[in-house]
Nucleic acid binder design. Structure first.
Lengths: 225, 225
DNA sequence: CTCCAATGTAATCATTGAATACATTGATGT
DNA sequence: ACATCAATGTATTCAATGATTACATTGGAG
């Protein structure tokens, strides 16, 4: 963001931030393996060795990228939680899947760096906040009688596994991303019968809709890059 | 498997198979990125250029690895389906998660190579067979009155998303792998209320059990490498 | 104004994927 | 039996990359 094309002084001024920004670019373009130190340095207009003044090695650079991406992800998700209505589960799940679809390579990085038992302290905070908010949301739903009285942690884990799996299946092109919204709604409705209490259910017949999987070759469905 | 240490003749005899076998070894040890052409050649006892006589490039070698792994995975899953009892959903999901936990790097490869819209013809067959078997299993369950009369494709996709997500969360160490079996059972019970019809339900109270997530640092849980 | 620590550069090395020219072998046809 | 040759493996080489080391430049602290 602050590349300082004019003059090209010896000292960049804000190399670390610029390096991370260019690394995120490369991540979005071609995944984590496309984030090479040299290419990042090239885009920042510095020598191939310059990044090593600020990051011990490539892994450290990727860790910094993970923190930036994690912060962005957490912000988007928390915004979805707070702006959602009384039964925000669908909105939250939709937001999660949408983020994965919009930034598939970031999602892959988040999987290994944030949705993992090994997190940096900076990520730990955002993740804990998100987990706490989600659990509170579930407990509140139970207090309002919308959710079954099962263990909130179990409900959270199960819902997250469902959303996690759907996101990954869309990203992997196993499911047609164009039908993401439809599928999310239908899956939530189907499994929601087990989670939502009577009050929260939608009045819907058994054979609501027919789903189309992307089993047959379906060119031009996912428009990533 | 057929490395012929004795004599070391000029011609290996079965280099392609040996290369793929060593590549699978490397995959299991360090993931797809650890599968380097040179290391595979080294383990097979041939020159670094020899593999290129049989595989156009590294991607072709990995594709061959994908086919072998896909065949193994399909065999294991189909065995789980056929050996399962009358309501085999739990057994099938458990088998899926167990495979992912036992071979996390294979699971990652399968995700991008097999659980994807772009498959080689060889994989297409196995995958189609598995999908068909699963759907037939669901339809049979519906005929026996064990499952709700929702679209079988929707049920299959939703169940797969749940299993997919749980597997990935275990592999990513987001959930404690030691509690995999417990969590699978509890999650299936919870969401099963939406899928299983009255006959298939287990008589169980609302607060069945408490789940432990691996949120807190929990060293020495997943024993992969 | 001088010094110096921070920051960037140049040069270098090992590893890897990949290509090319060459060597070896065993099967095949006569 | 024997020459031929396509298949198979080797030696060599090149570019890209991660990483290290010695050196150059800069701007601020004393």
């Amino acid at each position: 963001m602050n590349t300082r094309e004019a003059g090209r002084p010896y000292h960049h001024g804000s190399l670390p931030q610029a390096l991370v920004a260019h690394a995120v670019e490369l991540l979005d373009e071609g995944g984590a393996e496309a984030v090479t130190v040299r290419e990042v340095a090239r885009r920042a207009g510095v020598s191939p060795a310059a990044p090593f003044r600020h990051f011990a090695d490539r892994a450290a650079l990727l860790a910094a990228v993970s923190e930036v991406v994690a912060a962005d992800f957490a912000a988007v998700q928390l915004a979805a939680v707070s702006s959602a209505g009384s039964v925000p589960f669908r909105a939250l799940g939709t937001s999660f899947v949408h983020y994965a679809l919009a930034h598939p390579h970031r999602f892959a990085l988040l999987r290994t760096a944030v949705f993992s038992a090994v997190r940096t302290p900076a990520m730990e905070e955002g993740h804990r906040a998100f987990t706490h908010a989600t659990t509170e949301m579930i407990i509140a739903g139970q207090r309002r009688g919308e959710l079954r009285q099962a263990d909130p942690e179990l409900i959270r884990i199960a819902a997250q596994a469902l959303v996690y799996g759907l996101s990954q299946m869309f990203v992997d092109d196993y499911l047609d991303a164009a039908r993401a919204d439809d599928l999310i709604d239908q899956v939530v409705d189907l499994f929601g019968l087990g989670v939502l209490d009577e009050h929260g259910r939608k009045g819907e017949g058994p054979d609501a809709g027919v789903v189309q999987a992307a089993d047959a070759p379906d060119p031009g469905a996912v428009g990533d890059r």
